[in-house]
Write a protein that binds this DNA or RNA. Structure first.
Lengths: 188, 188
DNA sequence: GCACTAAAGCTATTGCTAATAGCCTACGAC
DNA sequence: GTCGTAGGCTATTAGCAATAGCTTTAGTGC
């Protein structure tokens, strides 16, 4: 029997694809194995069970999102940077709605790679806020407010909580406008 | 063998309690049956399988949350009402962190009870916004912004995404302050 | 007080899943 | 070419949801 040529990366990438395609979000090892033309136990050579697979998808998702956010803010500052960040964030979430919820899971403090990518994503945000001259408590509060508003909107949108699919663009822009305005006078 | 005296409500309430106690959020019929001193198949007499149980917990959670929100806004208007609403929302979510995510799931349009409680919760919000004289597009945008910010904060907080557990009260108050300020001049 | 019935519990069983043990063979290093 | 490792496999176990069909409780009509 010829080898399938699997690697950890291949398995996780395929699993992430499948996750986006399954309507209920219930990913099983059997599905992944089947899609790769392999038997279920074979996956254990590359991934530490279902938990390991999920963790791999999560870290990968965080890494991809962080890269998008970084890309979206280079060469920009203040309101311009915040808008770029918010739009990139939303775009990524809408493109990968099943993986998006994984990106907001708290990092396991014992998982080095997880902590690294999680901090990378939040780091972009703090860098942008530094442009407003915010520091210490002000920066923490502002970061939380910014994250809350953008994540909240995207979370509700991808979750289908906004009944009318119409005008979501305008609602998002106005939400970002409100955040930007608030940040202008955030310092106490 | 004596009867256990189960009803649909008893089963769902116990399941909701168990859900809050399980660290990973994985609720099984076996756990519920065991907790009620009954065998798993017996639950099917009161609840339509695991899916029906989950749906029951969801509708119950939405109903309880909507009641809290209603309670928190009576006799209040504008900024006062928004603050009451936001605080009640967060309090409920922190008290029932495992049930909270169920409350933002989009209602199944074929499920009458689900649609009713979902609309009741959102209705409170629109009532409060009516106090600002907002209507049509302005009201929709404002409602989405308000929901996004409050849900986003609570979602990140209960999910453990805010690393430092300290000063969350202040961060939340500042977030609500920002929302209130934005609503004052929301009309275009 | 007693037969009848509907509902509430049960056992037994099926099929799917994750996970582990242990075997077999492809394939690169030398 | 041979040898060792690693990547695939079959077989098996245990837990889960779900269904079929049985038994018994408990309320109702007479």
């Amino acid at each position: 029997m010829p080898r399938a040529g699997l690697t950890t990366e291949v398995v996780i990438e395929r699993a992430a694809q499948l996750l986006e395609q399954t309507p209920d979000g219930e990913l099983t090892l059997a599905m992944v194995a089947d899609s790769l033309g392999v038997r279920t136990p074979s996956l254990y050579k590359h991934v530490d069970g279902l938990a390991g697979l999920r963790r791999g998808i999560m870290v990968r998702a965080k890494r991809l999102l962080a890269a998008e956010l970084t890309q979206a803010t280079i060469g920009r500052a203040r309101a311009d940077a915040v808008r770029g960040l918010a739009r990139a964030y939303r775009s990524w979430a809408l493109a990968f709605p099943m993986q998006y919820p994984l990106t907001i899971l708290a990092a396991d403090s014992g998982d080095e790679a997880d902590v690294a990518v999680s901090e990378a994503a939040v780091g972009v945000l703090y860098t942008v806020l530094a442009g407003y001259g915010l520091s210490d408590d002000d920066a923490v509060d502002a970061a939380r407010f910014l994250r809350a508003s953008v994540h909240g909107f995207v979370s509700l949108e991808t979750g289908g909580a906004f009944r009318l699919p119409i005008d979501l663009e305008r609602s998002f822009e106005r939400t970002v406008d409100a955040v930007v305005t608030a940040l202008e006078t955030w310092q106490r």
